[in-house]
Amino acid sequence: MIKHPLAFAVAAALTLAGAGQAQSARDYISVVGSSTVYPFTTAVAEQFGKANANFKTPKVESTGTGGGFKLFCGGVGVQHPDISNASRAIKKSEVETCAKNGVTDIVEINIGFDGIVLASSKKNQPMPLTIKDIWLALAKEVPDPATGKLVMNNFKTWKDINPALPANKIEVLGPPPTSGTRDAFVELVMDHGCKEFEAIKALEKSDEKKAKAACQTIREDGAFIEAGENDNLIVNKLVANPNALGVFGYSFLEENLDKIQGETINGVAPSFESIADGKYPVSRPLFVYVKKAHVGVIPGIKEFVAEFTSEKAVGDDGYLGKKGLIPLPDDQRKQVAANANSLKTLSP
């Protein structure tokens, strides 16, 4: 009885599919992946489009690192993206998925670093934190100082953790587990902070899985507040609540220096220089992955890679630096550019 509309819909869809197939040649580069790398790739894409009148501006989708690799590894062909942004290196399992779908030659480009900062309102006293303090403040279970056994984290104020810190309530606003920033925070801060304790080290020897969980599990009693993926929102919440700390990317600190301050971690304040020379402990490399099989099929990929690795973009004075990307050291940068421009693929 609803045969008519259904048949009509199917017929219409089939016609449309025909239109889709007819338009199989894509003449613009398609980029997917991490929302952290998105602000940088888009800047390069725009510059590339403006400087090259004969190429269209690449399309950059913000899908998240994992979602990006899923699409990127979908196969070879114009319906699959050419480039994937990632706020972490590609995983072995992802390389395998890629290979299964025929995506074997992948070029990895390390475009620079992104610092992760703990920041608070300017109205707050600066807090000289250490990675150990942060872990004690945020881990779900911490070693009991007397017995060394893991007990529920009962620290209420920063002073409880370290007498040198102010008696402010522990309140940290951070990204949810789906975010790459959260992964990096856990890996760079939590994983290192817990290693400062003998109890965890001992546990690691006996039960590695349990030790990992003890290191990485963040407390759920309200001290760590998942504030969503939008870093601007966290900045605004910090201004409204001077006692809270926020976790986000360095570019948001740089853009809001009039309202917030970055806390020193292990004695190093987050700044362009301290992240660039590796003194600031919480920074991660950012990557772009290129599908070599698409070079020559989709116009402009080679030129786009050249733009992305040029000194003009990722150099010490590059326009990506102005957007908050921390450049690689000189020699490493030259190496990356040489590898990328010769399309050297990941070794299997």
């Binding site: 489009g49 269209k56 399309k59 957007k323």
Partner: peptide, 30 residues
Amino acid sequence: VAFIVDVPKSFLDPATVLPVQIYLWSDLPE
């Protein structure tokens, strides 16, 4: 949900829509 500089001219050009543009802009540091 994508960064698209060129204004779309047909039904098959890559495009984004107004609410998505709002979402993307709200997430930028500048």
